[in-house]
Design a protein around this nucleic acid. Structure first.
Lengths: 254, 254
DNA sequence: CAGTGGTCTAGACCACGTG
DNA sequence: ACGTGGTCTAGACCACTGC
């Protein structure tokens, strides 16, 4: 506990001065840094509010407000009586935030994953741009086919920055039974925290048609997702193609 | 100001008793009732925190927490130095929460709306179920075609409970220049607050193809939306069909 | 300058989980 | 019985808006 971070109390900021940051925002930033550094791992508890208040030399209420915001953003999870925990993809709750395809009738689907491909290569220009890399930087490309109740439903084309995902192989993926993001967390220390998606309807190409066992030209839902870790750093581009005859993409507008 | 609502202070609730509601949740419920009753209209300011605290006989902090939650749900809008306002669809910000189709290149699209149909009829079973009406209850059905830059892009099939939308006519719709939800607010006192959507890819039918000027079978994004007012009461079913060649549906996973 | 929401504090007490 | 987060209060002061 050697760190006594510098929190600026804005005592002298001129009224109407440009930069002004509330104390709790600074605490929030410090907590974010801790999460990013891996000081507290996914699933673990962070120190109690009182402990953090003591460490940062602020009141419990200020720490509370910082944690409130991180909890609202789903980075932390409060559990009364137990503590505050780092969110992890090893929980159904988190998982369904990212898995939006849902069966039309709420039956429990048996799911299967088949890895089609996993190779390292130089990033194409569009992928590089989305991942904020340089064209030609190494990336990992994974292609997989997900089935529900034995029928192929999702075709994923996934791109990851090579530097953060050394050692990602077909074998590792094939032996994996949890969601991909859970594996990224456990094996590579990469926590996905947020994602942006662009959705369109497209006609099935020949390869897509063959893999999904549908005619060429069949309408498919196409979802391009960019996922981010702490600090809004893009860490994955995922192009998903969904068959939506018996499934739909659910969304809530608030 | 005759109302001194009964807030239960839970002083005597046995430890571990079933029902227990924090004070601020009760205040929140009271504010929600006020919004629902139309005590404060969209765009108007609600009373100040101190005033509400006095009215409800609680501290400012408790009122604040109630308002915080309503603001987080986008029912209220805080503006420092000015007050707290009832959210309204007459603002670009609110509008884009519900309009998710976005041009691929961020150009400013000229938009046009053509009302195809507007008639009152007996509710089909599926619509009735979604609107929580009885089959055969009166509903209003509106069909319209939205164009961007002169090219038809969105085909909407809209269903509204007849009881709440008396006097909705083609003429009224044709003369309208604002978003539909803004019109619902001003003309019928119905505020849409939240919506659920189910999205799929479908092949264009003959009618759809003709109106959207595309070949039959062309892939289209199909969005079924159910919109809710205060208290989670469904007030609209909207089946939208989108052309996604130059537009996409944007979404954020948090 | 007055009034609004925003921040920060300190302390009391409640509800929950675990030992 | 203890420690955790959750609620509620009261008061001081700050930042923004508009008269």
């Amino acid at each position: 506990m050697s760190d006594q971070p510098t929190v600026e109390r804005n005592a002298d900021t001129a009224p109407g001065s440009a930069a002004f940051s509330p104390l709790y925002q600074q605490i929030k930033a410090l907590l974010l840094q801790g999460l990013d550094r891996g000081e507290w791992k996914p699933g673990e508890a962070i120190p109690s509010e009182l402990e953090l208040a003591a460490r940062f030399q602020v009141s419990q209420g200020t720490v509370r407000k910082a944690i409130d915001e991180l909890a609202a953003e789903n980075l932390l999870l409060r559990r009364q009586g137990k503590g505050t925990f780092v969110a992890t993809h090893h929980e159904a709750k988190v998982r369904f935030r990212f898995l939006r395809l849902t069966p039309d009738d709420a039956h429990s689907a048996v799911t299967g994953s088949r890895i089609l491909d996993c190779r390292r290569m130089r990033a194409p220009a569009d992928i590089a741009a989305l991942l904020e890399l340089r064209t030609g930087d190494t990336v990992v490309n994974v292609r997989r086919l997900l089935s529900f109740d034995e029928s192929p439903t999702i075709l994923d084309d996934i791109w990851l920055p090579g530097a953060s995902f050394k050692g990602l192989t077909v074998e590792l993926l094939a032996g994996n039974r949890s969601p991909l993001y859970a594996l990224f967390e456990s094996e590579f220390g990469v926590s996905m925290v947020r994602a942006d998606e662009k959705i369109r309807a497209v006609a099935a190409s020949e390869t897509q048609a063959e893999l999904l066992e549908i005619p060429v030209g069949h309408p498919l839902l196409h979802v391009e997702r960019v996922s981010f870790t702490y600090g809004d750093r893009p860490m994955e581009v995922r192009r998903g193609t969904y068959l939506t005859e018996r499934f739909h993409y659910r969304n809530s507008l608030n």
